[in-house]
């Protein structure tokens, strides 16, 4: 089997695994929609008070809410996906088996996570967005190229997101109990990705910092493209830069960890 086909199979497996939980998916769609509703009302009050806050008009702010709810699981802004599973395998020592598999460890998990993300985009992302578009006035582009540019940014966001969570998961090689790290990663991701408030609303230096961090690649970057608030090329360059840096860091940590496993005999 060619390597390309191997990873395609892994990705397809990741997609199918999540697709089996139908009731859970429906429950997630419902919950994201409810949270979307609550946020829309608070944003409306906020933008009523301060029109053009952060450079968005009201319709754009409301659109931002629904993009956020639709991409929350896809981009795993608060952690999740392969993160927990990989940590579990490290803790139980099953990871030793993975290390000897004739496939690249990082690519293997990346493929599985991309499969998962693809399912979450279709299964959990589309419906809340459609609901938002039907019930509220959204600022949506009409040309196909903007949508295409948005999807590319989402894909790059998936890579950055995986890069972050892979590093978080690898800490399990050194830490016995991963609850604390996972929780911290969740908090940072949730706050710094712009799930609470668009990052361009963050004031002063805090705003400068959060907009430069990798988490702004997850939600803020694709949203700004869709809302016509940013140009594709600089956005892509920013996202790709973080993706490369994080994935490289992941490789480095992985090789150090793998040496530990080999030395300790698993």
């Amino acid at each position: 089997m060619g390597t390309g086909r191997l990873y395609a199979t892994v990705a397809a497996g990741g997609f199918r695994r999540y697709a089996t939980y139908r009731a859970a998916t429906a429950a997630g769609v419902f919950t994201n929609t409810v949270f979307g509703l609550i946020l829309v009302y608070t944003y409306t009050a906020l933008w009523d008070e301060r029109p053009h806050l952060g450079g968005y008009d009201l319709a754009q702010a409301v659109t931002y809410v629904w993009i956020g709810q639709s991409l929350f699981k896809t981009l795993a802004s608060g952690g999740g996906g392969v993160e927990g599973e990989l940590m579990e395998r490290i803790r139980t020592g099953d990871i030793a088996v993975d290390l000897f598999r004739p496939a690249d460890l990082q690519l293997w998990w990346l493929a599985a996570d991309l499969g998962r993300a693809a399912f979450e985009l279709l299964g959990r992302g589309v419906l809340p967005f459609v609901f938002g578009a039907l019930v509220f006035d959204l600022a949506l582009p009409t040309d196909v190229s903007t949508w295409a540019a948005f999807l590319v940014a989402v894909l790059l966001g998936m890579l950055v997101s995986f890069g972050i969570r892979y590093l978080v998961a690898l800490t399990a090689f050194w830490l016995m109990d991963g609850t604390g790290v996972t929780q911290m990663a969740m908090l940072t991701g949730w706050f710094c990705s712009g799930m609470v408030l668009p990052l361009n609303v963050f004031p002063g230096a805090l705003g400068e910092v959060v907009r430069a961090l990798p988490w702004s690649s997850l939600l803020q970057a694709p949203a700004d493209l869709l809302l016509g608030h940013a140009d594709p090329l600089p956005t892509y360059a920013f996202q790709a830069g973080w993706a490369v840096a994080l994935l490289a860091a992941g490789r480095l940590v992985q090789s150090v960890a793998a040496r530990r496993v080999v030395v300790q005999g698993g």
């Binding site: 009731a23 859970a24 429906a26 429950a27 997630g28």
Partner: peptide
């Protein structure tokens, strides 16, 4: 009744 739908109650 719906064991997989735990997330609904989060709403």
């Amino acid at each position: 009744v719906a064991q997989d739908a735990a997330e609904v109650q989060n709403a």
